[in-house]
Design a protein around this nucleic acid. Structure first.
Lengths: 153, 153
DNA sequence: GCCGCTGCCGAACGATGTTCGGCAGCGGTC
DNA sequence: GACCGCTGCCGAACATCGTTCGGCAGCGGC
């Protein structure tokens, strides 16, 4: 990861669909060079993929929440079972496994408050390992691409 | 947002860099039709953009945390001031404004635990409106694209 | 000083994005 | 019920882009 790799990542972060020619011109190398670097970044796993940023309200899911979940016992078996189950739910858009008073932070997007309530009291209580639940409504969610610095391994 | 729009979104979600021809073939329309639909989705704001999924560990920031922050007073002025300030920090990769006992959940990625500790006790305490801070280390962070259903407005 | 290696370049070719004219299907109107 | 206008899709044409590959310059080792 030299300065050129970092510069390419920075360019693609603002718009993952930018053409390779654009990126090459922006970082000051030939298109073939930028393409080879990008391919290597992908092969090395630095670039995992490119995801579409969709307006959740526009697709009928304007209400977001973060649901802190405590599972008992906090064993690997119970943690991984809940993680895999929760991750597959259609309402789930993100899942944090965390330290602290709770074990999970479940990020969900639903149609309205009623659907949120139903999700918490119907879906989550299905699982025997769920000991405690604490729901916070998300008023606003901002995302920011990470700042990329050259890293010499 | 009919079934065709939803299908296009679903195709692009798995890989935002998929070629338009691929998407068109997958949803069963001509490339020109898929292109026009995609352009409209972008114009309507349904597609906000495409972001690169970067391996944070590979770019030198393997430690993530969620920091719950309570600001006093919980006025619009204090909330928005902290939000704008926190959102611009280089460590920040996400920011939730939430209801509940705390007002913010700050998602940060740093080089190591020492940098995390320094961030909490040096950076966050700079702000007078920060009344309380509760840090949770993120062991694992899974993301999932939202399920897209046709929505008729 | 020579040699081999690595990384970048630029041209060539195939694939892709983008535009545009035309047409089919559908609703509304008289 | 026939006409008309509108909407959305298609496919061809052209510009742009991705991808490959031979070559070369710079650098480090022997």
């Amino acid at each position: 990861m030299d300065e050129l790799d970092a510069a390419i990542l920075r360019e693609l972060q603002s718009d993952a669909r930018r053409s390779n020619r654009d990126v090459a011109a922006a970082v000051g190398v030939a298109p073939s060079t930028a393409l080879e670097r990008t391919r290597l970044l992908r092969d090395r796993g630095v670039i995992r993929g490119a995801t579409l940023d969709v307006d959740l309200a526009a697709v009928g899911r304007p209400v977001q929440a973060l649901i802190a979940v405590r599972v008992r016992p906090p064993s690997r078996r119970a943690i991984e079972a809940f993680r895999d189950w929760a991750q597959a739910l259609p309402e789930t858009i993100g899942l944090f496994v965390v330290s602290g008073a709770e074990d999970f932070l479940l990020h969900v997007a639903v149609a309205d408050n009623e659907a949120l309530y139903a999700f918490v009291i119907d879906r989550l209580t299905e699982r025997a390992e769920v000991a405690d639940v604490r729901t916070s409504v998300v008023y606003e969610h901002l995302r920011r691409p990470p700042r990329i610095d050259p890293v010499r391994p």
